[in-house]
Design a protein around this nucleic acid. Structure first.
Lengths: 123, 123
DNA sequence: CCTATAATCAACTATATGGTTTATTATCAA
DNA sequence: TTGATAATAAACCATATAGTTGATTATAGG
């Protein structure tokens, strides 16, 4: 049998959302998360593409860990980083409050484009 | 005819996402956005429920404006605030990169719960 | 055993953030 | 015209953030 339950974090508390959105508000951290979709990576592997120091990347990873978006497993010298997408679900749920709104905006845009098209057609 | 096109901002540039996620990383600003779903509100109306000063709320609104999430129309003394949900769409698109991942986590959870259930059943 | 390496810790710097209080601007209304 | 009100601006403060460099820890490997 499997020894551990899968980690699914869905807290819905405001401070957790603060930390998640804060974590996402930096391109380096978003890039890290994107690269962890496909595979687990070491800190040094994650750091390699960036111009900033390894220490800076290590701190970015710590921000992601505190937000619950990444977990690290140390084995020997290396620290393997794994994506934990659970908190992103909370963020998605929050943002989806607005899905009807942008849908409506798109409908309005479509109507407006139709209007323009009608004007062009009638020239 | 309508004088202005609907405002739908879908830039997909990293700095815009930075500003949007940064704007969402504060509970006061998220509350403001939520209350603007149903109706346009004045700065003073938005500020009323909060314990912080009107000036502080005004600055929060400015952060939202810079992120493209709110627009303000001044008429006389008052400034009417309106939600602009366009940039939230970009954020939703970014986060939806991970939707399959949570789905997978949920599936794994379901499998694990099934396993537990099987264990309970066989006792 | 010794050395190189992976990662983190610590100290420091510059800038950004979130709040305050006071001042200013502009408008409404008596 | 005068006074009250809505909002913003400006100056200031405390704390957080993102980066640096240098030190420390622990492990891998010749």
């Amino acid at each position: 049998m499997s020894s551990k339950p899968p980690v699914v974090v869905t807290t819905h508390n405001p401070e957790a959302l603060d930390a998640v959105f804060q974590a996402l508000a930096d391109p380096v951290r978003r890039d890290i998360l994107t690269r962890l979709i496909d595979e687990q990576l070491l800190v040094s592997e994650l750091a390699a593409p960036f111009e900033i120091s390894l220490q800076a990347v290590s701190k970015h990873i710590q921000v992601l860990v505190r937000a619950g978006l990444v977990s690290q497993e140390r084995s020997g010298r290396v620290s393997r980083c794994q994506l934990d997408a659970g908190p992103l679900y909370d963020a998605a749920v929050w943002i989806n409050q607005y899905s009807h709104y942008w849908q409506q905006q798109f409908n309005t845009l479509a109507a407006w484009l139709g209007e323009i098209d009608d004007q062009n057609r009638s020239k």
